[in-house]
C-alpha cells in the first residue's frame, strides 16, 4: 500500500504557490507519493467472484469514462463560452476520477491486466492501464471515442452517455463487489449532474435558433448508429451478471428509453423510431475493435507518459 509520507518539511503554505517548488518537486507534478486512489480500501475480491472477470468488467466501465473524459477535456479553452468550458472540464474531471478508481480496482483485482513496463517503473497501475495499453486493448464503447464534433454533437453524445451510465451505475450500487459498489455510488451523484447539464443544453439548442436545432438534429443522426452497442450484452458483462457483481446493459434499455423520450419531448423533437436496443452481432469496442478515431486520440493522450516510462510524475 502506498504511503503518503513525504520528506519535505516546509509548512503547508497555500498562500504562496511557489513555496514548495524548489524544496520538493514531486509535490508539483502529479502530486505526491499518494498515488493509490484506493489506498487503505479493502480490495480483496469477495468469494465466488472470479478476479479476472471483475477486472475485465471494471476495465470496460473505466475505459468508457477515461476516453470520454479525454474527448471532453479537448474542449478546454475551445468551448463556446467560459462557463461551458469550465462545465465540460468539470465533467471530464469527474469521469477521469471514476476511470482512475475503476482502473485501479481492475488492477487490484487482477494484477495481470497491468501492461508490462520497464523494471523499476514507478507508474501506478491505473496510469499504466491508461497510458501503456494500445488501442485494441481498450474496452470502451465506440460512442465515446469519436471526435467531439461541434458543441451540439458534444451535448447529444454526453446526454445519451449520461442517461445510460447513470442507469448502469445506479444498479451497480448493489454490486457484490463492495469496491465497485462504492465507486458506483459516488458516480451516480456525479453523472446525474452531467445528465442534467447535457439535457438542459439539448433542450436549449433544440429550442434555440434554426441553426442550433439543425445541428442538434444532425448530431442525433450522427450518433444513432453507435447507440446499439451501449445496450448489447457482451460475454464479459454476462459473466459479471452471473457472478452477481455486474449489470447487463440491455437491462437498462427500458429506463434509458423513458428518459430519452422525456428529453425529446422537452426539446419538441421527433425521436427516430427504431428502438436503440437493436442487438449488435459484430465485434465491438468491448472486444477491442475500435474505429479509426481512437488511435490518434490515444497517441495524443499517451505521448508524454510513453516518452518517459520510468518517469516519476
Amino acid at each position: 500500500m502506498t504511503s503518503p509520507s513525504t520528506e519535505h518539511d516546509q509548512p503547508a503554505d497555500h498562500d504562496n504557490a511557489y513555496a514548495g517548488l524548489l524544496v520538493n518537486d514531486t509535490h508539483w507534478a502529479f502530486g505526491t507519493d499518494f498515488t493509490d486512489p484506493l489506498a487503505g480500501v479493502d480490495t480483496a475480491v469477495p468469494d465466488g467472484i472470479e478476479p479476472s472477470a471483475l477486472a475485465a468488467y471494471c476495465l470496460m466501465l473505466g475505459d468508457d469514462a477515461l476516453v470520454l473524459s479525454h474527448r471532453l477535456s479537448q474542449w478546454c479553452s475551445n468551448a463556446p463560452d467560459l462557463e461551458i468550458d469550465i462545465a465540460l472540464a468539470n465533467i471530464a474531471l469527474d469521469l477521469l476520477g471514476q476511470a482512475r478508481l475503476l482502473l485501479a480496482r481492475a488492477a487490484a483485482a487482477d494484477p495481470s491486466v497491468r501492461p508490462a513496463l520497464p523494471a523499476g517503473s514507478p507508474v501506478p497501475d491505473e496510469d499504466a492501464l491508461a497510458f501503456f495499453r494500445d488501442g485494441h486493448q481498450f474496452r470502451n464503447v465506440r460512442l465515446v471515442e469519436q471526435s467531439s464534433g461541434d458543441f451540439a454533437a458534444t451535448i447529444v453524445r454526453l446526454m445519451f452517455f449520461s442517461c445510460w451510465r447513470l442507469a448502469l451505475l445506479q444498479r451497480l450500487v448493489d454490486s457484490r463487489d463492495p469496491v465497485l459498489a462504492a465507486i458506483a455510488a459516488k458516480g451516480v451523484k456525479e453523472v446525474a449532474y452531467h445528465r442534467d447539464f447535457a439535457g438542459r443544453w439539448f433542450v436549449t439548442l433544440a429550442d434555440g435558433t434554426e441553426e442550433s436545432r439543425r445541428r442538434i438534429v444532425g448530431a442525433i443522426e450522427l450518433i444513432r448508429p453507435q447507440l446499439a452497442e451501449l445496450f448489447t450484452d457482451h460475454p464479459v458483462e454476462a459473466a459479471a451478471v452471473a457472478n452477481g457483481f455486474g449489470i447487463a446493459p440491455s437491462s437498462t434499455a427500458a429506463e434509458v428509453d423513458t428518459v430519452v423520450d422525456q428529453l425529446f419531448t422537452a426539446a419538441t423533437l421527433q425521436r427516430p423510431q427504431e428502438p436503440i436496443s437493436t442487438p449488435e452481432a459484430t465485434p465491438s469496442g468491448r472486444d477491442g475493435q475500435h474505429t479509426e478515431a481512437l488511435g490518434p486520440m490515444l497517441t495524443e493522450m499517451q505521448s508524454v507518459a510513453r516518452a518517459h516510462p520510468t518517469g516519476s510524475w
Binding site: 504511503s3 503518503p4 509520507s5 499518494f34 484506493l38 487503505g40 480500501v41 459516488k186
Partner: peptide, 11 residues
C-alpha cells in the same frame, strides 16, 4: 502517519 481512503458512504 498514514492516510487511508474511504469511498463508502459517499461524501
Amino acid at each position: 502517519a498514514v492516510v487511508k481512503i474511504s469511498l463508502d458512504p459517499p461524501w
